[in-house]
Nucleic acid binder design. Structure first.
Length: 683
DNA sequence: CACTACACATGCACG
DNA sequence: ATGTGTAGTG
């Protein structure tokens, strides 16, 4: 069945990519060349040839890509695919970590720290090293720690952060926790040092695919190479060097060159026919990307007609920009019968989406924001997750400190710092310090605190946690009723009276309190539907926590129908829309000032150009680019220049909107003036 | 010793 | 808009 589809629906190189199942394969897939299609058909084809599901490992870059790939293969094969492994590198690392954790010195209830948890542990570590966390750029430090861990940097700076890093690492170990970097580095080290374990995984996964290969880091590359094992392994990587936009995360498109070196017998396939965009859009994209150096040779072409010109508009400020986008959407829906979900509005940063959101709300345009802080990052949800984590892993101090006095229960700063001291003295977790304290007390000694200390509150708190640990992990449900994690959690939230806490925190804003509480309710329902899913054979507290730890972005809701998609360019990778707006195409945003400011190297500007290229190539029929003349930054208004990349779009593809007359296109003379002005500005 | 109110600075992309 | 630090109160 699949064969017929392959023969009729694919072009020559695509067919070749799908049929080359054995041996190493490198696929260079230009934007819109049907990459996802090739990957899903390739997996379907492998299954057709009788390769067992369990022997296939498909590694992706985002959760969304993994989910999409899985559903598409499912649709294609109409099989259940219980044993097919399609996941992100991080999820795969976690899988190994879980399977081999006792060997690695972790208990199976380990916590996974996200960026926020990581930063609070770094703060703790700084304090312990008697440094002032307020004086350090925590975000930057956190990134440096990552670079050190993943081997992308060595200690050079004069500030002695090496000690802080050591304390941080010890902290993780004591708390039985890992960070996101560990999810990759620990499994890699394990496989590198234990050939028999590596061999076990090699035997299992005989066919490996890696999507978005240009965005893999060196660590991930080594992981893949190790799993492949030999230089004629069945490993297929798919990527496009022009779309490499994650170098700040350690991605290195030179992995493509490494692959060529490490797998000399590879077949190389180039997918260069673009099925997505009009040739105008494609030419615009090519015009921009051609300014980059050291690209892999490729010529994207399209059979489609030229289509509409790229429209460029210089709004007065960000609210004029938002109004313009909203009104264009309205107009196009009426004139060209587009639907709301045909529009994608892309911005460089999340914060830029705010203004546009407001305009959409005012104009009653339904929209969906992807990217931005995830549902799981919201304060109220993080609080509840911390309760779950501390129940699962009592040594998790970061979570403990978060909730020990949330809601207020009379355990204040001093008590907490005394506990912390005691724990640090013994190199243990706070939970351990608490146990010691209680032990001392029952044996008649005076514990940590004088008579009137917060010791009763502490006892009550730990008794409450212990009680729920019994309930959630020993699964002691009410007799006759099926045990449910969601039900236990509901009891817990009632027990701690989180609702009253929310009301207290937002006196004068009950709406907000209600909204936050409804988020919690939603969270509980998520657990409920997950644990009652008949396909879920492994529903438990640890599983749930692991699962949500890997979701860092809101890409869950798939009711995309009927909504304008508002997202960052990064989050839009892999998506396409009939109409695309690129908002805020200004110097300092694209390219982002951080990439030019610190003259790190020419490379970062090239990455920003690739980012712009990715944005352009999301469009199928029509592309709008807006660049504000002024924009509010923090408190004050600053004037802006258009992005230098705009001048790299071939001019004859552009139509200019006259400022002020939003819905009219300026005549050609005026357009030429604009170009001349812009040129002059850039010179 | 805990809690509240108020002043203060700060804000990129993703797993 | 958000979290963090500080001073004053019960």
């Amino acid at each position: 069945m699949t064969k017929r589809i392959i023969d009729t629906e694919l072009n020559e190189p695509q067919r070749k990519a799908v049929n080359s199942v054995d041996g190493p394969v490198l696929i260079i897939a230009g934007a819109g060349s049907g990459k996802t299609r090739v990957i899903t058909y390739r997996i379907a084809h492998m299954l057709d040839r009788g390769i067992p599901q369990s022997a296939i490992l498909a590694l992706t870059f985002t959760n969304k890509a993994a989910r999409e790939m899985e559903t598409r293969v499912k649709e294609l094969t109409r099989k259940k695919l219980q044993n097919l492994t399609v996941c992100t590198f991080h999820a795969f690392g976690l899988k190994i970590l879980r399977e081999e954790c006792e060997l690695l010195g972790y208990r199976k209830n380990f916590s996974i720290y996200d960026e926020t948890d990581k930063v609070s542990l770094i703060k703790e570590s700084l304090r312990e090293c008697r440094m002032n966390p307020g004086k350090v750029d925590l975000y930057e430090l956190s990134q440096n720690f990552s670079k050190i861990k993943t081997g992308l940097a060595k200690w050079t700076d004069s500030a002695n952060m090496e000690e802080v890093h050591d304390v941080y690492q010890q902290g993780l170990k004591i708390y039985n926790a890992v960070d996101f970097d560990d999810l990759l580095t620990i499994p890699l080290e394990l496989l590198e040092k234990n050939n028999d374990i590596a061999e076990k995984y090699r035997k299992k996964f005989r066919y490996i695919m890696v999507d978005e290969f240009q965005d893999t880091s060196f660590i991930q590359y080594r992981m893949m190479k190790l799993l492949a094992g030999k230089k004629d392994a069945n490993v297929c990587v798919v990527g496009d060097d022009d779309q490499s936009i994650y170098s700040w995360r350690g991605a290195n498109y030179e992995n493509i060159l490494l692959f060529e070196k490490d797998f000399p017998e590879r077949i190389e396939i180039k997918l260069e026919q673009n099925y997505r965009s009009t040739s105008t859009i494609l030419d615009a994209a090519n015009g921009v990307i051609s300014h980059n150096t050291g690209r892999k040779e490729k010529k994207l072409w399209s059979r489609q007609e030229s289509g509409k010109p790229v429209e460029l508009f210089y709004p007065e400020n960000e609210s004029a920009e938002a109004d313009f986008i909203a009104s264009q959407i309205r107009n196009l829906i009426i004139s060209d019968d587009f639907k709301y979900h045909d529009f994608g509005v892309l911005t460089r940063t999340n914060s830029l989406a705010r203004n546009i959101e407001e305009a959409f709300l005012a104009e009653n345009i339904p929209y969906r924001v992807s990217g931005g802080t995830s549902f799981f990052q919201r304060k109220e949800i993080k609080d509840i997750i911390s309760y779950l984590r501390i129940i699962a892993n009592p040594d998790d101090d970061v979570s403990l400190l978060r909730i020990i006095n949330t809601p207020r229960r009379g355990i204040g700063r001093i008590t907490v710092s005394q506990l912390n001291e005691a724990a640090k003295r013994n190199h243990t977790s706070i939970r351990d310090a608490l146990l010691r304290m209680n032990y001392a007390k029952t044996h008649g000694q005076q514990g940590l605190f004088s008579e009137k200390g917060a010791s009763t509150e502490l006892e009550e708190f730990s008794a409450m946690i212990d009680n729920f640990r019994d309930l959630m992990l020993e699964r002691k449900g009410e007799p006759g009723k099926p045990w449910r994690l969601s039900a236990c959690l509901r009891t817990l939230i009632e027990n701690i009276d989180y609702w009253s806490y929310l009301v207290m925190e937002h006196v004068r804003d009950e709406k907000k309190a209600r909204w936050k509480f409804s988020n919690i309710e939603y969270f509980i329902r998520m657990i409920e539907s997950w644990e009652t899913d008949p396909d879920n054979f492994d529903a438990g507290l640890y599983q749930w926590l692991n699962r949500i730890s890997l979701i860092t972005r809101d890409d869950g809701e798939d009711d995309v129908k009927g909504k304008v998609n508002l997202s960052t360019i990064h989050a839009a990778k892999g998506l396409e829309f009939p109409v695309v707006f690129i908002a805020g195409a200004e110097k300092g945003l694209i390219p982002h000032e951080k990439s030019i400011g610190e003259e790190e190297d020419e490379g970062s500007v090239e990455e920003e150009r690739r980012l712009f290229y990715v944005a352009i190539t999301r469009a199928r029929e029509k592309l709008y680019v807006t660049s504000c003349l002024q924009r509010r930054r923090m408190q004050n208004t600053v004037s802006c220049e258009p992005s230098p990349f705009l001048a790299e779009i071939p001019q004859d593809l552009i139509k200019f909107h006259d400022k002020g007359k939003e819905n009219e296109v300026a005549d050609d003379n005026e357009a030429q003036d604009f170009i001349a002005q812009m040129r002059a500005m850039l010179e």
